[in-house]
Design a protein around this nucleic acid. Sequence first.
DNA 1: CGGTTAACCGTTAACGTTTACGGTGGCGGC
DNA 2: GCCGCCACCGTAAACGTTAACGGTTAACCG
Lengths: 375, 375
Amino acid sequence: MKNITLFDIAEALGVSTGTVHRALHDHPGVNAMTKARVLQMAKSLGYRPNLAARFLSTKRHLKISVNTLKGTTSFWDEVRAGISDEAASLLMENVDLEFRTYPQLDEGEEESFQAALQAKVDGIIVFSSRPEKLRTWIRRASRSRIPVMCVTTDAPGSGRLAVVSIDTLASGALAADLMGRFLGGSGKIAVTLSDLRITEHSEKYSGFEKTMNALYPKMRVLPPLEDHDIEPVAQEKCRKLLDSHPDLTGIYVTTEASLPVLRAVRDAGLENQLTIITTDLFSDLVPQIRSGAVAATIYQRPRTQGRMAFRVLREFLTEGECPSYQITLAPHLVMRGNLDFFLERQSSENNGNRRRGARVVANNLPGGDVAVARS
Amino acid sequence: MKNITLFDIAEALGVSTGTVHRALHDHPGVNAMTKARVLQMAKSLGYRPNLAARFLSTKRHLKISVNTLKGTTSFWDEVRAGISDEAASLLMENVDLEFRTYPQLDEGEEESFQAALQAKVDGIIVFSSRPEKLRTWIRRASRSRIPVMCVTTDAPGSGRLAVVSIDTLASGALAADLMGRFLGGSGKIAVTLSDLRITEHSEKYSGFEKTMNALYPKMRVLPPLEDHDIEPVAQEKCRKLLDSHPDLTGIYVTTEASLPVLRAVRDAGLENQLTIITTDLFSDLVPQIRSGAVAATIYQRPRTQGRMAFRVLREFLTEGECPSYQITLAPHLVMRGNLDFFLERQSSENNGNRRRGARVVANNLPGGDVAVARS
DNA sequence: CGGTTAACCGTTAACGTTTACGGTGGCGGC
DNA sequence: GCCGCCACCGTAAACGTTAACGGTTAACCG
C-alpha cells in the first residue's frame, strides 16, 4: 500500500532514522548487530528509497567532462547534442557539462583528458581514437574512482565503465547482405577502414566478410584497405585499387571517410558501375545518396549514442549500477527513399526547444576548447 | 550560481511563498497585479521548479491503463515491455500500470476502454484497431481531461493527446528503394495491407508507390490488396494475385500478416522467384528470413514505441507539456545478415532485470484481462 | 454601526532523506 | 573523582514545494 520509509524501519526496530540511514549506507558508527537487524528489516519490509527526498536533501552537483573530436562533420555535434538532450531532460539533478574538444585525431586527446582529471570531474565521456594511448589515462581515472564512458569506440582493457557504440558486427553483416542482394549474389567487393587495430573497424570487416561468405559464396571480398583517417591516403589507395581490380563491383566504406573514395571512383569514371555502401550521414554525402552514387549508408545514430552514454553514466553515478558494460545500438539504414525523413528529423531535432532552459556558458580552459553547459 | 526557489521570488517581492506558488500555478485567490509581478520576477530570476521537492511534497500516484491486443505475436508483448521498462526507470514517481488486453481486433476494445475510464485512471495508452469506433470514447476521455496516447496507429480527429508510431512514409519509401535495388530497377510489385482507411497503411502504400515512381520509373506497383486482418482472406487474395500476375517479381507486406502471403507464394511454387519484403519480426518469420524467402523485414521497434508512449504521457501528466503530437520512429531493417543480432537483443532485453523491483500483481477486472504492475 | 462575506495573503505542517551535532553510557588514566 | 575518549545512537534542522488553515483587510447589507 503505502511506501516504506526510513521511519517505518526505525519504528519497527525501536531505533532512530539516523541509525537506519547509517546502517543502510554503510556509514561508520553503528553496531554490527544493529546494522544486521536494520538490513534484515529493510529487506523484509521491501524498503525502497524515495529518490525525490534524496535528491532534495543532497543537492549534488555532477560535473561531467565530454571529450570528443571537434565537429569536423556533424557526427560529434550530434553526439554532443544527444548528451545535452539527455542532461536537459533530467528532472532534478544538476549536472554541469564540460565539453572539451580536440581538433584532430591523435592531437590533444591526452591533454584534454588530463585537463578533465585536473578539473575534478565526477565522470568522463570520451571518444578514444587511439585506445592504446588513452588506456593509461583511463586506468588512472578509474583508480581515482572517476568512471569513464567510451562512445563509438571502445578502449578494451582500460578499466572504463562501459562503452556505447553501434553493433559493429551487425553493421558489417547488414552491409554484406545488402551488397549481396544489390549485386545479385556475385561480384568482387572492397572494404575500406581506418585501422585494423581498432576493434570496431575490424569487427565491421569481419562481420561483412563472414556474412558474405556464408550467404553469397560466389562473391569475393578483398582484404581491407586501411586509410588511417588520412584523406589523401584513402583516395590514393582507392585509386590504386580501382586500377588493379577493374572488375570491382562494390565498395563498403566502414568509416565516415567516404568522400575520398567517391572522388576516386568519379575520377575513374566508374560512378554507375559500382555499388557503394557508406557509413554515417553528413551534408556532403547527401547529394551522393540522392544521385544514386551511394546506394545506401549505415547511420550510426550519433545522437542516440550520446544520449545512451550520458544516461548510463548518470545512472552509475547516482545509483551505483551499470546495466551493461557494452551497450550496442542497431544502426539505421538510409537510402534515397528515406533520406528526406532523416534529414527532416535531424533538423527538427536541432531546432527543438532545449527544454528546461539549459544555460550554456563558453569557456577556455587548458586542454583544448571547453564549453560549459549547465542544466 | 545557486538555484532560484519560491522563497527567493517571494523575498524579492516582499510576499510569501504561498502567494508565489498560487500565482505560478494559476490558483485562485491572488491579485492580478501581484500575479503579474510574480510571473515577471520568476522569469527574470530564471526560476525553475525543483522537481524533487515537488514530487516529495505531492506524492501523487499516477494510474495508467494500457489497452492493447493480447500477445498474439510478440509485437504487443514488446510494446508492453517497453512501457514497463520506462515506468520502472522512473526515478521518483509512483505509477500504477493497468494492462487491459483484448483477444481480437474489434473485440473488447471499447469495453476495456470503458473499464479504464471507470477505474478513474490518469491516462490511457491505447492501440486502436478501429479508430472510428474508439473515437467517441477517446473524445469522452479527453473531455474528462484524461489524456489518451495512441500507439502504432493513430486515431485522427479524436482529441487524443499524441500518437507514437513508425514513420510510415519512410517505411514505405525504404521498402520501395530496397525493392528497386534488389530487382535491378524493373519488375511488377504488389503491396498488401489491412485496410486503406487506416492512415498508417495507406501512408505506407503511398510512400512505397511515390518512391517507386520517382526512383524506379520502369517498375510497376499494383493497386493494394486489402486483407482486413483476416488470414484466409489474405491467403486467398494473394493466390488470385499470383494467378493473374504470373510476371510478378516482388511483394511488400505492410502489416504483420505475412505468413498467409508466404503460404500462398509457396503453394504457387514461386519461393525463389519473388522478392518479398515484410513488416515486423516474430518467431514464425525467422525461418522465412533465414531461408531467404523473405529478403528483408521492416522492424517497427515495438519496445521503443512503448517506451516513447509512456514517456510522453508521463511528461504530459507531470509537466503539462507534450513535445509533439506525432512522434515517429525510424524503422529498423532486418535481413539474414543481422537477424541474429536482433533476436539476441530481444531475448537479452527480456531477461534483463526489471529494475527497481517493480512489483506485479495480476488481477481480473471487467473489460478484459487486467494485470496491474506497480513501480 | 455591528456583522457578514469575499478577496487576498501569510503561516505552517507535512513529504522522506541526509547530516551535523549532541548526548548517552562505559572504559581507562592521572 | 575528574577528565577525556570511544562507540554508539538520538535529535533536529535543513532541502523546496504543496496545500490546508487562519488571519487580515475592505466592501456591502441590514
